[in-house]
Write a protein that binds this DNA or RNA. Structure first.
Lengths: 226, 226
DNA sequence: TAGATTGTTAATCGATTAACAATC
DNA sequence: TAGATTGTTAATCGATTAACAATC
Protein backbone atom coordinates (compact mmCIF):
# COMPACT_ATOMS: atom_id res chain seq x y z
CA UNK A 1 0.00 0.00 0.00
CA UNK A 2 2.70 2.48 1.07
CA UNK A 3 2.02 6.15 0.39
CA UNK A 4 0.65 5.81 -3.14
CA UNK A 5 -2.97 6.55 -2.27
CA UNK A 6 -2.16 10.01 -0.94
CA UNK A 7 -3.25 13.31 -2.44
CA UNK A 8 -0.80 15.86 -3.70
CA UNK A 9 1.93 16.83 -1.25
CA UNK A 10 3.51 20.30 -1.49
CA UNK A 11 7.12 20.30 -2.62
CA UNK A 12 8.18 22.43 0.38
CA UNK A 13 6.79 19.70 2.62
CA UNK A 14 8.98 17.11 0.90
CA UNK A 15 12.02 19.34 1.26
CA UNK A 16 11.37 19.75 4.96
CA UNK A 17 10.87 16.01 5.34
CA UNK A 18 14.50 15.58 4.30
CA UNK A 19 15.50 18.13 6.92
CA UNK A 20 13.55 16.37 9.65
CA UNK A 21 15.16 13.09 8.67
CA UNK A 22 18.62 14.54 9.02
CA UNK A 23 17.92 15.79 12.55
CA UNK A 24 16.27 12.51 13.49
CA UNK A 25 19.41 10.64 12.47
CA UNK A 26 21.42 12.98 14.71
CA UNK A 27 18.97 12.53 17.57
CA UNK A 28 19.06 8.78 17.27
CA UNK A 29 22.83 8.88 17.50
CA UNK A 30 22.48 11.02 20.64
CA UNK A 31 20.18 8.35 22.02
CA UNK A 32 17.20 10.67 22.24
CA UNK A 33 14.08 8.50 22.12
CA UNK A 34 11.22 10.97 21.98
CA UNK A 35 10.83 14.45 20.53
CA UNK A 36 8.01 17.01 20.48
CA UNK A 37 7.13 19.30 17.60
CA UNK A 38 8.22 22.25 19.79
CA UNK A 39 11.67 20.70 20.12
CA UNK A 40 11.84 20.13 16.37
CA UNK A 41 11.15 23.83 15.91
CA UNK A 42 14.01 24.71 18.24
CA UNK A 43 16.43 22.49 16.38
CA UNK A 44 15.44 23.07 12.76
CA UNK A 45 13.93 26.54 12.83
CA UNK A 46 10.80 25.13 11.21
CA UNK A 47 7.51 26.11 12.85
CA UNK A 48 6.03 23.38 15.08
CA UNK A 49 2.61 23.60 13.41
CA UNK A 50 4.31 23.33 10.06
CA UNK A 51 6.04 20.15 11.18
CA UNK A 52 2.78 18.57 12.34
CA UNK A 53 0.99 19.67 9.19
CA UNK A 54 3.77 18.21 7.04
CA UNK A 55 3.46 14.85 8.73
CA UNK A 56 -0.35 14.93 8.53
CA UNK A 57 -0.15 14.41 4.76
CA UNK A 58 1.12 10.92 5.46
CA UNK A 59 -0.81 9.76 8.51
CA UNK A 60 -0.43 9.92 12.28
CA UNK A 61 3.02 9.72 13.76
CA UNK A 62 2.91 11.00 17.34
CA UNK A 63 1.15 10.48 20.65
CA UNK A 64 -0.74 13.48 22.07
CA UNK A 65 0.83 14.54 25.33
CA UNK A 66 3.99 12.59 24.57
CA UNK A 67 5.53 13.42 21.22
CA UNK A 68 7.17 11.35 18.51
CA UNK A 69 9.35 8.28 18.78
CA UNK A 70 12.62 9.26 17.11
CA UNK A 71 13.44 5.91 15.56
CA UNK A 72 9.91 5.22 14.38
CA UNK A 73 9.56 8.66 12.81
CA UNK A 74 12.96 8.34 11.17
CA UNK A 75 11.99 5.03 9.61
CA UNK A 76 8.64 6.24 8.42
CA UNK A 77 10.03 9.40 6.82
CA UNK A 78 12.76 7.36 5.14
CA UNK A 79 10.04 5.07 3.81
CA UNK A 80 7.99 7.99 2.49
CA UNK A 81 11.05 9.35 0.70
CA UNK A 82 11.86 5.88 -0.64
CA UNK A 83 15.24 5.85 1.00
CA UNK A 84 14.39 3.15 3.55
CA UNK A 85 16.24 0.88 1.16
CA UNK A 86 19.28 1.71 -0.94
CA UNK A 87 18.35 4.17 -3.69
CA UNK A 88 20.71 3.80 -6.64
CA UNK A 89 21.94 6.76 -8.66
CA UNK A 90 24.24 7.33 -11.59
CA UNK A 91 26.36 10.39 -12.32
CA UNK A 92 27.17 11.91 -15.70
CA UNK A 93 30.03 14.38 -15.85
CA UNK A 94 33.24 13.49 -14.09
CA UNK A 95 34.48 17.07 -13.84
CA UNK A 96 35.26 19.00 -10.68
CA UNK A 97 31.68 19.20 -9.53
CA UNK A 98 30.88 15.61 -10.39
CA UNK A 99 33.94 14.38 -8.52
CA UNK A 100 32.99 16.41 -5.49
CA UNK A 101 29.49 14.94 -5.50
CA UNK A 102 30.71 11.34 -5.67
CA UNK A 103 32.65 12.00 -2.49
CA UNK A 104 29.82 13.84 -0.75
CA UNK A 105 29.65 12.30 2.72
CA UNK A 106 25.94 12.50 3.57
CA UNK A 107 24.91 10.32 0.63
CA UNK A 108 25.60 6.93 2.15
CA UNK A 109 24.06 7.88 5.47
CA UNK A 110 20.81 8.65 3.65
CA UNK A 111 20.99 5.41 1.64
CA UNK A 112 21.74 7.08 -1.66
CA UNK A 113 24.22 4.95 -3.50
CA UNK A 114 26.19 6.09 -6.53
CA UNK A 115 26.63 2.99 -8.66
CA UNK A 116 28.15 4.32 -11.90
CA UNK A 117 29.90 7.36 -13.35
CA UNK A 118 29.89 8.41 -17.00
CA UNK A 119 31.66 10.98 -19.15
CA UNK A 120 32.05 11.67 -22.85
CA UNK A 121 35.73 12.57 -22.62
CA UNK A 122 37.87 9.72 -23.89
CA UNK A 123 40.71 11.01 -21.78
CA UNK A 124 38.61 10.23 -18.70
CA UNK A 125 36.83 7.03 -19.73
CA UNK A 126 38.43 4.01 -18.10
CA UNK A 127 40.04 6.03 -15.34
CA UNK A 128 38.93 5.64 -11.74
CA UNK A 129 36.85 8.12 -9.77
CA UNK A 130 36.91 7.13 -6.13
CA UNK A 131 35.87 3.49 -6.18
CA UNK A 132 34.18 3.60 -9.60
CA UNK A 133 35.51 3.49 -13.13
CA UNK A 134 34.44 6.26 -15.48
CA UNK A 135 32.44 4.81 -18.34
CA UNK A 136 31.46 6.04 -21.79
CA UNK A 137 28.20 7.99 -21.59
CA UNK A 138 27.11 6.37 -24.86
CA UNK A 139 26.89 3.10 -22.96
CA UNK A 140 24.63 4.42 -20.23
CA UNK A 141 21.56 2.58 -21.54
CA UNK A 142 23.39 -0.72 -21.74
CA UNK A 143 24.96 -0.31 -18.30
CA UNK A 144 21.78 0.88 -16.59
CA UNK A 145 19.78 -2.01 -18.01
CA UNK A 146 21.59 -4.00 -15.34
CA UNK A 147 21.99 -1.40 -12.61
CA UNK A 148 18.37 -0.20 -12.79
CA UNK A 149 19.12 3.19 -11.27
CA UNK A 150 16.18 5.58 -11.50
CA UNK A 151 17.95 8.77 -10.41
CA UNK A 152 20.75 10.52 -12.29
CA UNK A 153 22.94 13.45 -11.39
CA UNK A 154 23.69 15.61 -14.40
CA UNK A 155 26.92 17.57 -13.97
CA UNK A 156 27.93 18.28 -17.57
CA UNK A 157 28.35 21.63 -19.36
CA UNK A 158 25.16 23.35 -20.52
CA UNK A 159 26.11 22.72 -24.15
CA UNK A 160 25.72 18.95 -23.86
CA UNK A 161 23.17 18.76 -21.04
CA UNK A 162 20.06 18.30 -23.21
CA UNK A 163 21.64 15.57 -25.31
CA UNK A 164 22.86 13.70 -22.25
CA UNK A 165 19.49 14.10 -20.51
CA UNK A 166 17.82 12.49 -23.54
CA UNK A 167 20.24 9.56 -23.27
CA UNK A 168 19.42 9.23 -19.58
CA UNK A 169 15.68 9.12 -20.19
CA UNK A 170 16.24 6.49 -22.84
CA UNK A 171 18.27 4.54 -20.27
CA UNK A 172 15.31 4.36 -17.91
CA UNK A 173 16.11 7.31 -15.68
CA UNK A 174 13.00 8.90 -14.11
CA UNK A 175 14.54 11.70 -12.03
CA UNK A 176 17.41 14.08 -12.74
CA UNK A 177 19.32 16.38 -10.43
CA UNK A 178 20.47 18.97 -12.94
CA UNK A 179 23.45 21.26 -12.35
CA UNK A 180 23.55 22.64 -15.88
CA UNK A 181 22.05 26.13 -16.12
CA UNK A 182 19.38 25.56 -18.73
CA UNK A 183 15.80 24.36 -19.09
CA UNK A 184 15.75 20.64 -19.85
CA UNK A 185 12.89 19.62 -22.14
CA UNK A 186 11.93 16.10 -21.19
CA UNK A 187 8.87 13.82 -21.18
CA UNK A 188 6.41 14.54 -18.37
CA UNK A 189 7.16 11.36 -16.44
CA UNK A 190 10.73 12.57 -15.80
CA UNK A 191 11.20 14.71 -12.69
CA UNK A 192 13.90 17.35 -12.69
CA UNK A 193 15.37 19.43 -9.87
CA UNK A 194 17.68 22.23 -10.86
CA UNK A 195 20.54 23.38 -8.68
CA UNK A 196 21.91 26.81 -9.51
CA UNK A 197 24.70 28.30 -7.43
CA UNK A 198 24.45 31.50 -9.42
CA UNK A 199 20.81 31.82 -8.50
CA UNK A 200 21.62 31.39 -4.81
CA UNK A 201 24.45 33.89 -5.00
CA UNK A 202 22.27 36.38 -6.85
CA UNK A 203 19.65 36.28 -4.10
CA UNK A 204 22.37 36.86 -1.50
CA UNK A 205 23.92 39.66 -3.49
CA UNK A 206 20.58 41.42 -3.86
CA UNK A 207 20.16 41.61 -0.11
CA UNK A 208 23.49 43.32 0.49
CA UNK A 209 23.11 46.94 1.33
CA UNK A 210 24.59 49.09 -1.39
CA UNK A 211 26.94 50.92 0.92
CA UNK A 212 29.71 49.51 3.11
CA UNK A 213 28.57 49.99 6.69
CA UNK A 214 31.67 51.49 8.28
CA UNK A 215 32.40 55.10 7.21
CA UNK A 216 36.13 54.48 7.51
CA UNK A 217 35.76 51.64 5.04
CA UNK A 218 33.75 53.81 2.69
CA UNK A 219 36.74 56.13 2.51
CA UNK A 220 39.00 53.18 1.85
CA UNK A 221 36.71 51.86 -0.84
CA UNK A 222 36.58 55.28 -2.49
CA UNK A 223 40.35 55.49 -2.47
CA UNK A 224 40.58 52.08 -4.11
CA UNK A 225 38.42 53.17 -6.99
CA UNK A 226 41.36 54.68 -8.91
CA UNK B 1 18.92 56.08 -5.12
CA UNK B 2 19.09 52.65 -6.84
CA UNK B 3 16.48 50.13 -5.80
CA UNK B 4 16.55 50.78 -2.08
CA UNK B 5 13.17 52.49 -1.85
CA UNK B 6 11.31 49.42 -3.01
CA UNK B 7 8.88 47.35 -0.98
CA UNK B 8 9.50 43.72 -0.21
CA UNK B 9 10.30 41.54 -3.18
CA UNK B 10 9.41 37.83 -3.05
CA UNK B 11 12.41 35.50 -2.95
CA UNK B 12 11.08 33.46 -5.90
CA UNK B 13 11.11 36.68 -7.93
CA UNK B 14 14.79 37.19 -7.13
CA UNK B 15 15.59 33.62 -8.08
CA UNK B 16 13.86 34.04 -11.41
CA UNK B 17 15.67 37.33 -11.99
CA UNK B 18 18.91 35.35 -12.01
CA UNK B 19 17.39 32.98 -14.56
CA UNK B 20 16.28 35.83 -16.81
CA UNK B 21 19.74 37.31 -16.60
CA UNK B 22 21.35 34.11 -17.74
CA UNK B 23 19.09 33.90 -20.80
CA UNK B 24 19.63 37.57 -21.58
CA UNK B 25 23.39 37.02 -21.63
CA UNK B 26 22.84 34.17 -24.10
CA UNK B 27 20.52 36.28 -26.22
CA UNK B 28 22.93 39.15 -26.33
CA UNK B 29 25.63 36.79 -27.55
CA UNK B 30 23.24 35.61 -30.26
CA UNK B 31 22.77 39.27 -31.23
CA UNK B 32 19.08 39.28 -30.40
CA UNK B 33 18.11 42.89 -29.65
CA UNK B 34 14.51 42.67 -28.50
CA UNK B 35 12.47 40.05 -26.71
CA UNK B 36 8.83 39.75 -25.63
CA UNK B 37 7.56 38.20 -22.43
CA UNK B 38 5.97 35.44 -24.53
CA UNK B 39 9.39 34.57 -25.93
CA UNK B 40 10.88 34.56 -22.43
CA UNK B 41 8.23 32.03 -21.47
CA UNK B 42 9.19 29.80 -24.40
CA UNK B 43 12.86 29.90 -23.47
CA UNK B 44 12.74 29.71 -19.68
CA UNK B 45 9.47 27.91 -19.03
CA UNK B 46 8.44 30.78 -16.76
CA UNK B 47 4.94 32.18 -17.34
CA UNK B 48 4.92 35.45 -19.31
CA UNK B 49 2.69 37.20 -16.78
CA UNK B 50 5.04 36.04 -14.05
CA UNK B 51 7.96 37.60 -15.89
CA UNK B 52 6.19 40.93 -16.28
CA UNK B 53 5.04 40.86 -12.67
CA UNK B 54 8.57 40.11 -11.50
CA UNK B 55 9.94 43.11 -13.35
CA UNK B 56 7.12 45.35 -12.11
CA UNK B 57 8.61 45.28 -8.60
CA UNK B 58 11.48 47.32 -9.96
CA UNK B 59 9.94 49.69 -12.46
CA UNK B 60 9.11 49.68 -16.17
CA UNK B 61 11.40 47.89 -18.54
CA UNK B 62 9.57 47.30 -21.82
CA UNK B 63 7.68 49.11 -24.56
CA UNK B 64 4.06 48.04 -25.13
CA UNK B 65 3.69 46.55 -28.58
CA UNK B 66 7.46 46.08 -28.89
CA UNK B 67 9.00 44.16 -26.01
CA UNK B 68 12.21 44.51 -24.04
CA UNK B 69 15.63 45.62 -25.18
CA UNK B 70 17.91 42.70 -24.38
CA UNK B 71 21.00 44.68 -23.44
CA UNK B 72 19.10 47.26 -21.40
CA UNK B 73 17.16 44.63 -19.50
CA UNK B 74 20.33 42.66 -18.86
CA UNK B 75 22.06 45.71 -17.43
CA UNK B 76 19.15 46.68 -15.26
CA UNK B 77 18.68 43.18 -13.81
CA UNK B 78 22.41 42.97 -13.13
CA UNK B 79 22.13 46.30 -11.34
CA UNK B 80 19.19 45.13 -9.23
CA UNK B 81 21.12 42.02 -8.21
CA UNK B 82 24.21 44.13 -7.48
CA UNK B 83 26.30 42.25 -9.98
CA UNK B 84 26.64 45.12 -12.43
CA UNK B 85 30.03 45.56 -10.83
CA UNK B 86 32.37 42.86 -9.55
CA UNK B 87 30.91 41.22 -6.44
CA UNK B 88 33.68 39.81 -4.27
CA UNK B 89 33.34 36.52 -2.41
CA UNK B 90 35.48 34.39 -0.17
CA UNK B 91 35.38 30.62 0.26
CA UNK B 92 35.96 28.61 3.41
CA UNK B 93 36.63 24.91 3.01
CA UNK B 94 39.10 23.82 0.38
CA UNK B 95 37.77 20.26 0.14
CA UNK B 96 36.31 18.58 -2.92
CA UNK B 97 33.23 20.71 -3.03
CA UNK B 98 35.05 23.95 -2.33
CA UNK B 99 37.58 23.24 -5.05
CA UNK B 100 34.82 22.50 -7.53
CA UNK B 101 33.12 25.78 -6.69
CA UNK B 102 36.26 27.85 -7.20
CA UNK B 103 36.46 26.46 -10.71
CA UNK B 104 32.76 26.91 -11.45
CA UNK B 105 32.65 28.57 -14.86
CA UNK B 106 29.53 30.75 -14.67
CA UNK B 107 30.88 32.82 -11.77
CA UNK B 108 33.04 35.19 -13.75
CA UNK B 109 30.43 35.72 -16.43
CA UNK B 110 28.03 36.90 -13.72
CA UNK B 111 30.67 39.16 -12.15
CA UNK B 112 31.10 37.06 -9.03
CA UNK B 113 34.76 37.04 -8.13
CA UNK B 114 36.34 34.66 -5.65
CA UNK B 115 39.12 36.62 -4.01
CA UNK B 116 40.33 34.34 -1.20
CA UNK B 117 40.15 30.74 0.00
CA UNK B 118 40.48 29.57 3.61
CA UNK B 119 40.80 26.28 5.43
CA UNK B 120 41.66 25.12 8.93
CA UNK B 121 43.78 22.17 7.81
CA UNK B 122 47.48 23.01 8.19
CA UNK B 123 48.23 20.46 5.51
CA UNK B 124 46.33 22.64 3.07
CA UNK B 125 47.22 26.14 4.23
CA UNK B 126 49.83 27.71 1.96
CA UNK B 127 49.04 25.42 -0.94
CA UNK B 128 47.49 26.76 -4.13
CA UNK B 129 43.90 26.26 -5.22
CA UNK B 130 43.58 27.34 -8.84
CA UNK B 131 45.03 30.84 -8.84
CA UNK B 132 44.62 31.44 -5.10
CA UNK B 133 46.63 30.38 -2.07
CA UNK B 134 44.77 28.62 0.71
CA UNK B 135 44.94 30.73 3.87
CA UNK B 136 44.37 30.02 7.56
CA UNK B 137 40.70 30.49 8.42
CA UNK B 138 41.76 32.12 11.69
CA UNK B 139 43.09 35.01 9.61
CA UNK B 140 39.85 35.60 7.74
CA UNK B 141 39.05 38.82 9.63
CA UNK B 142 42.47 40.28 9.03
CA UNK B 143 42.47 39.33 5.36
CA UNK B 144 38.94 40.47 4.70
CA UNK B 145 39.58 43.84 6.32
CA UNK B 146 41.42 44.57 3.09
CA UNK B 147 39.41 42.53 0.61
CA UNK B 148 36.04 43.77 1.88
CA UNK B 149 34.11 40.80 0.53
CA UNK B 150 30.52 40.68 1.77
CA UNK B 151 29.59 37.20 0.53
CA UNK B 152 31.13 33.95 1.75
CA UNK B 153 30.72 30.38 0.55
CA UNK B 154 30.78 27.94 3.44
CA UNK B 155 31.87 24.47 2.34
CA UNK B 156 33.15 22.95 5.59
CA UNK B 157 31.90 19.90 7.52
CA UNK B 158 28.79 20.38 9.64
CA UNK B 159 30.84 19.96 12.80
CA UNK B 160 32.78 23.17 12.27
CA UNK B 161 30.25 25.16 10.25
CA UNK B 162 28.78 27.21 13.12
CA UNK B 163 32.20 28.21 14.45
CA UNK B 164 33.42 29.21 11.02
CA UNK B 165 30.21 31.12 10.30
CA UNK B 166 30.76 33.12 13.50
CA UNK B 167 34.28 33.96 12.31
CA UNK B 168 32.88 35.06 8.97
CA UNK B 169 30.34 37.38 10.54
CA UNK B 170 33.07 38.86 12.69
CA UNK B 171 35.07 39.39 9.50
CA UNK B 172 32.34 41.57 8.03
CA UNK B 173 30.53 38.97 5.94
CA UNK B 174 26.85 39.77 5.42
CA UNK B 175 25.73 36.84 3.28
CA UNK B 176 26.59 33.15 3.40
CA UNK B 177 25.98 30.40 0.88
CA UNK B 178 25.94 27.42 3.21
CA UNK B 179 26.59 23.86 2.06
CA UNK B 180 26.77 22.38 5.56
CA UNK B 181 23.61 20.52 6.51
CA UNK B 182 22.64 22.36 9.68
CA UNK B 183 20.82 25.45 10.86
CA UNK B 184 23.26 28.33 11.27
CA UNK B 185 22.37 30.66 14.14
CA UNK B 186 23.54 34.12 13.15
CA UNK B 187 22.64 37.76 13.76
CA UNK B 188 19.61 38.97 11.79
CA UNK B 189 21.62 41.19 9.46
CA UNK B 190 23.35 38.13 7.99
CA UNK B 191 21.57 36.46 5.08
CA UNK B 192 21.96 32.73 4.59
CA UNK B 193 21.03 30.48 1.69
CA UNK B 194 21.31 26.76 2.28
CA UNK B 195 22.14 24.31 -0.48
CA UNK B 196 21.30 20.71 0.28
CA UNK B 197 21.89 18.03 -2.32
CA UNK B 198 20.28 15.47 -0.05
CA UNK B 199 17.13 17.54 0.09
CA UNK B 200 17.01 17.72 -3.70
CA UNK B 201 17.63 14.01 -4.05
CA UNK B 202 14.98 13.22 -1.45
CA UNK B 203 12.35 15.16 -3.40
CA UNK B 204 13.31 13.28 -6.57
CA UNK B 205 13.31 9.95 -4.81
CA UNK B 206 9.84 10.56 -3.38
CA UNK B 207 8.41 11.03 -6.84
CA UNK B 208 9.68 7.71 -8.16
CA UNK B 209 6.94 5.17 -8.52
CA UNK B 210 7.46 2.32 -6.09
CA UNK B 211 7.50 -0.35 -8.75
CA UNK B 212 9.82 -0.72 -11.73
CA UNK B 213 7.69 -0.08 -14.82
CA UNK B 214 8.70 -3.02 -17.00
CA UNK B 215 7.29 -6.40 -15.88
CA UNK B 216 10.40 -8.16 -17.17
CA UNK B 217 12.48 -5.94 -14.94
CA UNK B 218 10.25 -6.61 -11.96
CA UNK B 219 11.11 -10.29 -12.39
CA UNK B 220 14.79 -9.42 -12.56
CA UNK B 221 14.56 -7.24 -9.47
CA UNK B 222 12.74 -9.96 -7.60
CA UNK B 223 15.39 -12.49 -8.56
CA UNK B 224 18.09 -10.14 -7.30
CA UNK B 225 16.47 -9.93 -3.90
CA UNK B 226 18.05 -13.16 -2.71
C1' DT C 1 -6.72 13.34 37.10
C1' DA C 2 -3.95 17.36 35.35
C1' DG C 3 -0.62 18.62 32.09
C1' DA C 4 1.26 18.13 27.75
C1' DT C 5 1.11 17.68 23.03
C1' DT C 6 -0.92 15.93 18.99
C1' DG C 7 -3.77 16.22 14.48
C1' DT C 8 -6.76 19.15 12.08
C1' DT C 9 -9.57 23.06 11.07
C1' DA C 10 -9.97 27.65 9.79
C1' DA C 11 -7.74 32.10 9.20
C1' DT C 12 -4.06 34.36 7.32
C1' DC C 13 -0.67 35.29 4.34
C1' DG C 14 1.70 35.32 0.01
C1' DA C 15 2.56 34.00 -4.76
C1' DT C 16 0.83 32.94 -9.42
C1' DT C 17 -1.87 33.82 -13.30
C1' DA C 18 -5.59 35.58 -16.28
C1' DA C 19 -7.52 39.49 -18.10
C1' DC C 20 -7.44 43.93 -20.05
C1' DA C 21 -6.89 49.00 -20.43
C1' DA C 22 -3.00 51.69 -21.72
C1' DT C 23 0.37 52.47 -25.08
C1' DC C 24 3.82 51.99 -28.54
C1' DT D 1 -4.38 53.30 -37.92
C1' DA D 2 -4.30 48.26 -36.63
C1' DG D 3 -1.71 44.91 -34.28
C1' DA D 4 1.17 43.71 -30.68
C1' DT D 5 2.59 43.71 -26.16
C1' DT D 6 3.27 45.96 -21.92
C1' DG D 7 2.20 47.01 -16.76
C1' DT D 8 -1.17 46.31 -13.39
C1' DT D 9 -5.39 44.86 -11.30
C1' DA D 10 -8.15 41.38 -9.54
C1' DA D 11 -9.05 36.47 -9.15
C1' DT D 12 -7.21 32.27 -8.12
C1' DC D 13 -4.43 29.19 -6.08
C1' DG D 14 -1.55 27.27 -2.58
C1' DA D 15 1.20 27.34 1.62
C1' DT D 16 1.84 28.80 6.43
C1' DT D 17 0.36 29.39 10.96
C1' DA D 18 -2.70 30.00 15.00
C1' DA D 19 -6.00 27.94 17.64
C1' DC D 20 -8.13 24.24 19.93
C1' DA D 21 -10.72 19.89 20.62
C1' DA D 22 -9.13 15.26 21.06
C1' DT D 23 -6.20 12.26 23.41
C1' DC D 24 -2.41 10.23 25.77
Amino acid sequence: MSSSHLGKVPIPTLERLATYLRYLIDLEQSQVETISSAEVERQTGINAAQFRKDLSYFGEFGKPGVGYNVLDLQNRIAHILKIDKEQRMILVGAGNLGSALVGYPGLKEHRFSLVAVFDNNFGKIGRPLWDLEIQDVQKVKEVNAKLQARIAILAVPATSAQKVADLLVDAGIHAILNFAPLLLRLPPHVHVRNVSFLQELAVLSYHLSSEPDDPALVALTEAEKE
